[in-house]
Structure formats: C-alpha cells, structure tokens
Design a protein around this nucleic acid. Sequence first.
DNA 1: TCAATAGTTCCATAATATCGAACAATTGAA
DNA 2: TTCAATTGTTCGATATTATGGAACTATTGA
Lengths: 97, 97
Amino acid sequence: MALSDPMRLRIIRSMVNQQGCMSCTEAAPCPNMAKSTLSNHFRVLREAGLIHTEKRGVEHRNIVRLDDVEARFPGLLKTILAFSDTEDKERWRAPPP
Amino acid sequence: MALSDPMRLRIIRSMVNQQGCMSCTEAAPCPNMAKSTLSNHFRVLREAGLIHTEKRGVEHRNIVRLDDVEARFPGLLKTILAFSDTEDKERWRAPPP
DNA sequence: TCAATAGTTCCATAATATCGAACAATTGAA
DNA sequence: TTCAATTGTTCGATATTATGGAACTATTGA
C-alpha cells in the first residue's frame, strides 16, 4: 500500500498541510534524502492515485487528490494527519506491557 | 511501523471484530500462511505495544490493547477498521488520473 | 510415556527502500 | 545561440524486511 511507508506518509502530510501544490523537493521528508528515493516515492503515490503531478517549467508540481482519497478511504487522511510528524518516533514506541 | 503491514492490519482487524481473545492461528489473515511468518507478525505487534499476549495452555491468547492504541492514535483503529477486509484490493487500486 | 497441537527460532529467498551516478528536460544568463 | 544550473528520472548496487520451510520447545491428553 502506498500509505504504508512512513516517508510517503510524511510527504502526503507536507502537501496537505501546505494546502496546495508542492515540488518534489519541497515535499521531501528530510533534506538529505536522495533525489532518486524521493522520485520513487512520488511515482508510487502517483500510481496509487493519491496525488496528481503536473509539469510546470523545470519542476513538477504535486497536489494531493483530496476528494478521491476521501472517497476511497473516508476519514483516513484526517485521522492520520492528526498525529504530528515530529512526535512519530515517540508515539510508535511501545508502552510497558 | 507495526500497522504499516497489510497482513498485520488484517490480524488486528480479526481481533477487534472478534471482540476478545484469539489464538495466533485463529487470527491468521490466510489459512495457508506459514506459522513462522505469523509468529513474526505477532512479535512485531507485541513489541509495538498494540496487543497483549497471554499463554494459556498450549496456545497463546492475544487481545488488542484498545485503550492504549486509542490513547496513542486517536480514531485510527476505528477509521482503519471501517474499510472492509474483502474489498481492500479494489480499494487500493488507483482511480483514473 | 508418547503423540498431537501451538508457537518460536533459525536459515534462505523474494520484495522493497535507499543511495549514488549518469542521464534528460527546461530555464535563464552570457 | 550556447551553456551552466536546476529538477526529476533511470539504472545498478546494497540494506532492510516479509515470507516460507525445517527443526525445536512447551503443553495437553490419550
């Protein structure tokens, strides 16, 4: 699944929070991520129908297909995006059993 | 992340729908899944703090730690479980661009 | 005591994320 | 026009992870 990957989730999060188009570089989860890796994630997101990409000049403008995603996964984006990005590592650490 | 894997998601789904304890075999996503694979998924879920496992006789009884999960990921389980299992393949197929 | 059952552990294989290097396309400046 | 800079893509290699099979452990019941 396209949204299974933590990095792709962070990409989507960036784009939704921005409320508009972003270039691939702008939406990168971390500044030191390799261009090839980033490009691959955007390809997966595109092929999954989660984002739309439009070539504008030298860069690619990407936008989340909010309506389509909401239609297929009602409430999912809203729920996932409610978790702040910076706390993810903390959040995923297991509490004592 | 423990919930990133589709198989683990189906395991959790089984357990929540059952509203109680399930043995590892009972909660298996598919009947032909190898025992070792299943065991590994349960270990990941345990270590992530998503389920609690208790040895009872020859089998292990597992239960989803609903309160803990809800506290860490408000609304996540409810949202994810709203997607019926059998339609997942359809759902994850991309719509036309 | 012993066979059957339920999981675990270990090793090998397949799928996927990641990175670096080379490449293509577009823009803007010399 | 020509060329350097910018933005992504493609390709090959490596690391991580899911999967399956075989051997093992623990527990139950005959």
